[in-house]
């Protein structure tokens, strides 16, 4: 226990060194404190933001947008991806569209989503949905296509119906690739959300960062920036844990 604590400490020591360097550089005014307020001030601002409810309110708005956009893209992307791998006509119709959409930098869609749906939740959810659907679809497609033909054939020869095979053989086989695609989507959803909120929003992380920055409250701005960065990191780690569990459960079943 103590050994693992110690090894963790050694492992993450560089982050502590960076934090200390930040504090020292700012405290001794080696850099301009407007550009880099001391870390301790940032922590104090974070507590203030937490207590007066600004942080909680805006976090809730942002997380709702991510959950909705990501949730929709996972459901619809999975259906499309497996559909493409399973039924040729679907593939013929949809593959070219996915191929054209895939390389589009999705941030280019921000102004259009605002024109269509305004500054509220709708435009952010649409953007995240459109952006995240592509990696989910590709993950589901690659996974389902790779699920072993032999298994499919043997299941069919044993008299399993097409849907039965889809549910029992193809879907679980597609899982590892699909989970990978969703991981990409989780990271992308944070990038798109923050970008969209920085450019056009009235609440959310991006909005809070922008308005604190415009008002000159830089230590509070840093506090929110670090919060978002941490949440993105935490979401990824939590996702990895869930994905690992899901895969283990599949192996066991």
């Amino acid at each position: 226990m103590i050994a693992s604590l110690r090894s963790n400490f050694v492992r993450y020591l560089p982050l502590l060194i960076l934090a200390a360097a930040w504090e020292i550089a700012a405290r001794f005014e080696l850099v301009s404190t407007t550009a880099l307020p001391p870390l301790s001030d940032v922590v104090r601002s974070w507590v203030e933001l937490l207590l007066d409810g600004d942080l909680v309110r805006n976090s809730a708005a942002s997380l709702f947008r991510i959950a909705a956009g990501l949730g929709l893209s996972v459901i619809i992307g999975t259906i499309i991806g497996i559909g493409m791998a399973w039924w040729k006509p679907v593939n013929i119709l949809i593959a070219p569209i996915v191929e054209v959409l895939y390389p589009v930098p999705k941030s280019a869609l921000i102004p259009v989503t605002v024109i269509w749906l305004g500054y509220g939740d709708g435009s952010k959810i649409l953007l995240i949905f459109l952006g995240c659907m592509v990696p989910v679809t590709i993950g589901a497609f690659n996974g389902a296509r790779a699920s072993e033909q032999v298994l499919v054939w043997s299941a069919r020869s044993m008299g399993a119906g097409k849907l039965r095979v889809l549910w029992d053989v193809v879907a679980p086989g597609a899982l590892p690739e699909l989970l990978n695609g969703i991981r990409t989507a989780v990271a992308l959803s944070f990038i798109l959300l923050v970008s969209a909120e920085l450019i056009a929003a009235q609440k959310g992380f991006g909005f809070l960062i922008g308005s604190l920055g415009a008002g000159g409250s830089y230590s509070a701005m840093y506090a929110v920036v670090l919060t978002v960065a941490f949440l993105g990191f935490a979401a990824d780690r939590a996702y990895l844990m869930i994905a690992k569990r899901t895969l283990a459960w599949r192996e066991a079943a």
């Binding site: 492992r11 560089p14 550009a35 990038i191 959300l193 991006g206 960062i209 920055g213």
Partner: peptide
């Protein structure tokens, strides 16, 4: 490796775009 490894493993999944206003400031 000791120095960069935790920075990369923590930094990779972060939405770095949130730092954009900080970059403007600098």
């Amino acid at each position: 490796n000791w120095f960069f490894d935790p920075i990369i493993s923590v930094g990779f999944p972060m939405p770095k775009i949130a730092f954009l206003p900080v970059i403007i400031l600098w």
